Computed example of a mutant assay.
Amino acid sequence: MGGRSNSIRIIGGEFRGRRLSFANLPGLRPTADRLRETLFNWLQGQVEGAACLDLFAGSGALGLEALSRGADFVRLVDQSRVVVRQLQQNLKTLQQEPRGEVVAGDALRLLSRDADRSFDLVFLDPPFARDWLENACDLLEQNHWLKPRSWIYLEQDSHKDWPRTPPQWSLYREAGAGQAACRLFRRDIMQN
């Protein structure tokens, strides 16, 4: 059973049922299968062909699920070298290196720079012990990481109050499972 405890299962799409390992680090907590399934049901029809940004990637459960469901490109960001190596290995195992990119670094520092590209779908699931969501949301807006009609997923400890989000984001859906609560937002900006 020890091997299974450090693995995630892809729920749907091309790699459905595949198990992938993730780094055994304290505080690393993949998004639960139930929440992942709920999220991707909400996003039905939005993932295929999308450019996705998985910040605080950890196990990579969200970004790898998006790849399995037809995302054109997924960037996974994490600051742990151990996590980065495992994410790179998982992309190699799935033969998805051209569509998946792993960036080693601090997600908030990355967001502090002007974006090199904008994304259709962003996953924000930082460590529960950290209060990084509000800052990450603000930086996504300030530095042009989002497309006009992007989707933004937030996950946090269910006992915390939700952070303030930018006014142009509309709450689309919310759910919870165990210790985790999640919200999905839609950004609604008119293009010039």
Rank of each mutant, 00 (worst) to 15 (best):
A107F: 06
T93Y: 13
N143P: 01
R164I: 02
K160D: 00
D116G: 12
N90K: 12
L94K: 13
R109H: 03
D78P: 03
E101A: 07
E141L: 13
A129V: 13
K92D: 10
P167A: 13
W151V: 01
L91R: 11
D72Y: 09
R75Q: 12
L124Y: 08
R117V: 04
D131E: 13
L121I: 12
L133A: 04
D106E: 07
D138Q: 15
T93W: 13
G70I: 07
S112Y: 04
L94C: 07
Q86D: 02
R75A: 10
R164P: 00
P127V: 03
L108V: 02
R109V: 00
Q96K: 14
Q168F: 10
A71S: 13
L133P: 03
W132E: 15
S80K: 05
V102L: 07
D125L: 10
D131A: 09
P163S: 05
Q89S: 11
P166C: 07
A107P: 08
Q79R: 15
K160R: 15
K160H: 05
V122E: 09
K92M: 07
T165W: 15
W145L: 06
A71K: 12
S158H: 09
R85S: 05
R117I: 01
S158Q: 11
R99V: 00
L133I: 08
A107D: 03
L91Q: 11
L87V: 04
E101R: 15
L154N: 03
D125Q: 11
L140A: 05
A107R: 10
L111C: 01
L139H: 06
L139G: 02
H144P: 00
E101L: 13
S150I: 02
L133H: 05
K160N: 01
N143M: 01
R117S: 12
L154K: 08
G100A: 05
E141G: 02
E155C: 06
V83A: 08
S118N: 14
S158G: 03
L108C: 05
A136H: 08
E101I: 01
P127Q: 09
P166W: 13
G105S: 06
D72F: 08
Y153A: 00
S118M: 09
Y153D: 00
S150D: 03
P166G: 03
